[in-house]
Nucleic acid binder design. Structure first.
Lengths: 344, 344
DNA sequence: CTGAAAGCGCTTACAG
DNA sequence: CTGAAAGCGCTTACAG
């Protein structure tokens, strides 16, 4: 087996200096067209391709962009990654993907690994456990551009790409009200997480705008799983003043609600309206089909990646960190359509 | 902003040679315990961590393992990646993830990039378009271990991890026969793809074992989408001799079948039995719930990663390439349960 | 047990 | 327009 050709082999083959080869490959203006042609031919002849690692070490320019996410195996996250990859690929950067698996310690370790791997930039969606941001400050201290998406921490001055959760929730509630529901409960996730805090805000704002009182009994926080949502729904239904609609801060929770309604033979949307969040792939398959808020995860990932590439292109431009909200869209299906039944 | 400490800073701080620091950090046996302790303290003091890129260039040992997949945003693939990441992470390797987006040209480009990035090994699930394997031979020529998973090409001598598609299909058909179905149709994907070829084999073998004739009219190949499956189902139902069960080579196809049955008010499982493949997350949510074959994607990814780590540990051991089949499991739900109704 | 020195494969100021 | 030479931050034979 022959060893892979390096730049010295190419230079020797042509009888020129390695610097000439290096410049020719980068289309450096000071190299003559004739020499460039010779170099490209030799490169093909010897099947040469530059060692990215060596180039990185010498130039200081990394060859990869790091991504840290809680877990890759969710519909939302894998679609974010899909969007990121589509944007990053043409730029020539590699994508190094790390999972925190929702643990702060692993996230910290991921950050260190990426720094030691000389990545050019880091895109992160923080874990549930992450409250301290020392590890993120470390990224900035190493002069590595950092962008947060979806799961962000607000204390840090970095660019953020998020779904406009407040708006998504607001529109969901407005829709329920339009459909004639007025006693609207909220099943929310852990309130310390950015997205759930904002969905709660949207819920409150929409009630206020429509002169509906906030009923503390109808607000159930910190629900994480389908079975917890099931139980919470049972409690709501058994209470003295049961709601006539339930807004869920995720589709997983909505599945628990539908399960509870089905078990008790309560009709949705006729008796109880249900809206989820995330527009997971099964929204068309539940009975009734599930109204939900589409977050456009591919666009979230793509935007984060685009901004990263912009930053990497003009490193010197220090712009003010901004937060970009991707506008969500309510996908109306049957579970909330008491007035007009949609075709699906 | 201070520059990150390098190994020279640590050596200078202690008044020792960089070689001593390097060896101490690797727990080299020739370094005294006392010196090691000093080095570790200095490392903490200066907040030093080794530059992986430089180490890679000098030692020739890569720091990353590359993964090439068609698309990350599928339930199956993102779970494979999840399994891979869980195994790779403790080893200290980074995971570089590339998408071919089902295009041969991009897959080729991914391979080149990974080689130039000096990855230690490559895990690949090939694209639909991939028939030529020159790019994979290139990986071997560069002495980089290669492992294929799920979507494999058979012409190459490499380790493979696959779901046992033949068995999965076989058991699905046996189950349908046990449930009293005897006129069993097959909706299959593109037959040139390994997994579909084998699911077809399993289908044929199970019919043969049970003395059922193969009915060419009931075998519809090259169905890729839900709507194609819908149309194919309509054709089957309208034919002179309609089947009494339909085995689908993917859950997506099964959704098209259920859609067609629903539209025509044909009851499943009573009139037509339906079995899918892949056990996608919505199997519990369809009406009827969908019997399907679970492939254990996390295990497939984890096995591939484990074998890669083994190969990287003892590089010299040239073992014979083997194919490992992960045994699938039929998850029986309502769509195929004509005799005994399962609880779900 | 420790150190001096070479070198991995590039890039880039500097010189001409 | 091209080349000689230094150096990125490590590791590793070799020497003692």
């Amino acid at each position: 087996m022959e060893k892979k050709a390096n730049i010295i082999d190419v230079a020797r083959y042509l009888g020129v200096a390695t610097s000439t080869v290096s410049r020719a490959l980068k289309d450096h203006p000071s190299i003559s067209a004739k020499t460039k042609k010779l170099v490209f031919n030799a490169v093909r002849e010897l099947n040469y391709s530059p060692n990215k690692i060596a180039a990185n070490l010498r130039s200081g320019n990394g060859t990869a962009i790091g991504v840290i996410i809680p877990k890759i195996n969710s519909n939302f996250m894998s679609n974010c990654i899909f969007g990121i990859e589509n944007v990053i690929y043409p730029s020539g950067y590699n994508l190094i993907i790390c999972q925190s698996t929702e643990h702060y310690e692993k996230e910290l370790s991921n950050v260190k690994t990426l720094i030691d791997s000389q990545v050019s930039g880091i895109l992160i969606s923080v874990s549930n456990e992450t409250v301290s941001t020392g590890h993120l400050a470390m990224v900035k201290a190493n002069n590595i551009p950092l962008i947060m998406f979806d799961r962000i921490t607000e204390s840090l001055q970095v660019d953020c790409i998020v779904n406009d959760d407040t708006r998504g929730a607001y529109e969901a509630i407005e829709h329920l009200i339009e459909q004639g529901y007025s006693k609207i409960a909220l099943l929310n996730g852990p309130e310390h997480i950015y997205v759930y805090k904002n969905r709660y805000q949207g819920y409150k704002q929409a009630l206020a705008s429509n002169n509906l009182d906030l009923q503390p009994d109808w607000i159930i926080q910190n629900i994480n799983t389908q079975s917890n949502a099931y139980q919470a729904t049972c409690l709501l239904l058994d209470s003295k003043h049961p709601p006539d609609a339930i807004f869920c801060a995720s589709d997983t929770l909505a599945l628990g609600v539908l399960e509870a309604l089905k078990q008790r033979n309560i009709q949705s949307p006729e008796q109880i309206g249900v809206v989820g969040y995330g527009n997971d792939i099964y929204g068309d398959l539940t009975t009734p089909t599930l109204t939900s808020v589409e977050q456009f995860p591919q666009e979230i990932g793509a935007s984060a990646a685009q901004i990263m590439l912009q930053i990497l292109e003009d490193k010197n431009v220090k712009s003010i960190p901004k937060t970009i909200s991707i506008r969500p869209r309510l996908i109306v299906r049957r579970s909330s359509s008491r007035k007009v039944k949609p075709s699906i």
